[in-house]
């Protein structure tokens, strides 16, 4: 049985200018110890998916219209607040993109590190501080005994991200959701943080959902990848298959538009147009207006994910019909 099983999740935002279908009917699962990558452009709904699971969607304007997210037998979307609190922050933890805005600037990091322990476990302050010190050393902060009393502004960007990872991992979660944790960092620091996440995952045996827009990051880290576009999953596969034989036209286009995959000096391949306005209901495939292979029926029929092989599924009508 998978650790987390999400079915038919729909998260819509009801605003004055209309209903934004940020996440529109997606289903996926994460197994124990597995690393799932969620890839997509901004506005594709990858963050909203994870915020929905964590119960971080502001309601209103957001509303979870349908769906379940079963984590170890408990539906995170419909459980009591008490049940949710016992799971969130303890068994499921999250790290965010910008470590400066997600740490509290007024509190020493020691306070922030031990907070989840004091809430979730019967533990004395002294023992909690000892655990915090140990985890800070684990995430590679030198001189942890001194630095644990620092404020967030006294750390560099990469160090802050390490502190945030330490904070998420201190309760030894079974699932870590990482929302673009390296996007704001330099490549050299990004490499350090990715190594750290891999190392901590090996040690704790936890599952990871890794959200990113960078296909390069996914290739080295994830077991399985799902590609999102305009609130829907267009393709999902194990990492090797996704990179070596992508099926959906969007995945192929995304892969072709990476500069390092193309000959130097040549005109870069680009996807024409822009992602669709999510406030307007889409009859057909959301990628059809930008797709070079779109046929008439792509604009009217809503494609569903269909298995290509045991590990790959994609949602393109023409691929499913064997035309591409």
């Amino acid at each position: 049985m998978p650790l987390l099983n999400v079915t038919d999740l729909r998260t819509w935002f009801h605003t004055r200018s209309g209903v934004y279908r940020a996440v529109d009917g997606i289903s996926f699962s994460v197994g124990r110890g597995e690393t799932l990558g969620i890839v997509g452009e901004s506005g594709s709904g990858k963050s909203v998916t994870c915020y929905s699971i964590m119960g971080l969607i502001p309601q209103p304007p957001g509303r979870i219209e349908s769906g379940t997210a079963i984590f170890d037998g408990v539906d995170l979307l419909h459980c009591t607040p008490k049940q949710a609190r016992s799971i969130r922050g303890k068994r499921v933890a999250m790290i965010f993109q910008d470590p400066m805005t997600s740490l509290n600037p007024y509190l020493r990091i020691s306070e922030q590190l031990i907070e989840p322990l004091l809430i979730h476990e019967k533990i004395s302050r002294r023992d909690a501080l000892a655990r915090a010190l140990a985890i800070l050393e684990d995430v590679g902060i030198n001189d942890a005994a001194k630095r644990i009393h620092y404020y967030p502004h006294e750390f560099s960007g990469g160090m802050r991200q390490r502190v945030m990872i330490a904070m998420a991992l201190i309760t030894k979660p079974e699932l870590l959701i990482a929302d673009e944790p390296t996007t704001a960092l330099d490549v050299t620091v990004q490499a350090q943080i990715l190594e750290l996440i891999k190392k901590m995952q090996r040690e704790l045996g936890m599952a990871v959902i890794f959200i990113t827009h960078d296909l390069g990051v996914v290739s080295g880290l994830c077991d399985r990848v799902q590609v999102m576009y305009a609130g829907r999953i267009v393709e999902t596969a194990d990492t090797r298959t996704l990179f070596h034989s992508p099926k959906h036209p969007y995945t192929r286009a995304l892969q072709r538009s990476i500069p390092s995959m193309q000959a130097k000096g040549a005109e870069l391949f680009t996807i024409p147009g822009m992602p669709p306005d999510l406030s307007k209901p889409l009859a057909g495939c959301s990628f059809a207006p930008r797709c070079e292979y779109a046929a008439d029926r792509c604009y009217v029929e809503n494609p569903q994910l269909a298995a290509v092989s045991a590990t790959q599924a994609q949602a393109c009508l023409r691929v499913q019909a064997g035309e591409l």
């Binding site: 050299t188 490499a191 990715l194 190594e195 390069g216 996914v218 290739s219 990492t239 990179f243 390092s260």
Partner: peptide
């Protein structure tokens, strides 16, 4: 060299086999 080696490549086979120079510190 370190900077080049830190770029993640969008190819899982290359990515999983190559040696990476991870710089310590900031």
């Amino acid at each position: 060299r370190a900077l080049v080696s830190a770029i993640p490549t969008p190819d899982p086979d290359v990515e999983r086999t190559r040696q990476r120079i991870v710089l310590a510190g900031d």
